[in-house]
Design a protein around this nucleic acid. Structure first.
Lengths: 198, 198
DNA sequence: CGTCTATTTGAATGTACTCAAAAGCGGTGG
DNA sequence: CCACCGCTTTTGAGTACATTCAAATAGACG
């Protein structure tokens, strides 16, 4: 299908930013993934389910969040096109997930199961390098976020978010951004008012 | 030297938890690292320096922390024997580090430079897998921490810390633990009092 | 349009912080 | 080995940042 071809192209393009692939390898990769569509508000994963796939996002936007004992939502991350989503812990250990993953927009994904990924590591060992580099970057980004949550006020964190993810501002509601920053939507609204008065 | 042999053995043992190594490969790994000793309160890295090595800890305990604009310290992580330390972002990009790494105890390290690590990826490709698995675990741990900082109170986070890292409690001062949890030492003291009254 | 959800605004509240001082503990030198 | 000094921890009182609750307004979607 047209979408599939386009989608796979994006995926291969992404791999190619990190490693050089032969056309044979591209074929193998191609055949390791399957495509999935999600409409806005559909769930990719619900808590207590086991995350059976990692998903590359061709288009759309997804949110990973947890729900605390009082029923409040907390956003672990947003993911948009050319990035990955999934619960890595659950995926790796087959443990029930603590998280929900929901589509904030209609989304197109390319998914790979653990057996297929393990096969892929064996048949195309370069993939090992791709994922190492990918997760290194993700690790560094997370560390930066931890540092900010330890050392900055809510206002500074919001301004840093605006700076770092201007694209998200247009696509994601304040309520969700607040839950990413670790504050209430009410308080974010107050901060924005305060900031705009300057 | 005796220490070097013992230390290398620990390192190889650690690799072997993730990958199978031939004696030839062990030799190559061995020759890629150099040993370093730090006395308590010595710095492995200071902010604005470039982190030139990643360090495997044979013995001891180190703390990675940042200093905010008001001069307060914030702990990104503690690292003890059989784990790694270093500033990955600075190491990968040659950017000046935002962080300080200090020995909280006398420590013995095995260090590898970026050129040596890159050589090692080529000569012993399995190492790629080792570091992928290692950083996957680190990523998952960090994600858990982010989730806790978003969804739990300081008291819950402290109790979770006690639960998860009982060994650290005996080795690390409350002041440092507070800076890891994102609270002041004064407030941690109050929490402990409150908890002990139950 | 009408309904539902998100955002804004205001007032009261609580969690965690600051400042200050005392008590405890650990390392060092005489 | 003890005494002292400096740093950590405790305790208390006042404060500030962020929350909760409530209600009004704005915006999105069928």
């Amino acid at each position: 299908m047209k979408d599939n071809v386009i989608g796979s192209a994006k995926l291969i393009e992404h791999f190619s930013k990190y490693i050089k692939l032969e056309s044979e390898e591209i074929e193998i990769i191609h055949s390791s993934f399957s495509q999935k569509s999600l409409k806005k508000k559909e769930f990719l994963l619900r808590s207590n389910q086991i995350c059976r796939t990692e998903s590359f996002i061709i288009s759309g936007c997804l949110q990973t969040y947890s729900i605390d004992e009082n029923g409040f939502e907390h956003t672990l991350n947003f993911a948009i096109e050319d990035w990955w989503t999934g619960d890595l812990l659950s995926f790796l250990t087959d443990a029930p997930s603590l998280y929900n993953i929901i589509a904030l927009e209609n989304s197109e994904l390319l998914q790979i199961t653990k057996p297929n990924l393990e096969k892929l590591y064996l048949t195309v060992p370069k993939i090992e390098r791709y994922f190492r580099l990918l997760i290194q970057n993700a690790y560094v980004t997370q560390q930066e976020r931890i540092n900010q949550s330890l050392s900055q006020t809510a206002e500074q964190r919001y301004l840093a978010f605006v700076e770092k993810y201007p694209a998200y501002l247009k696509r994601i509601s304040q309520k969700h951004i607040a839950s990413y920053l670790g504050i209430t939507p009410v308080f974010l609204s107050m901060l924005r008012k305060k900031i705009s008065r300057r």
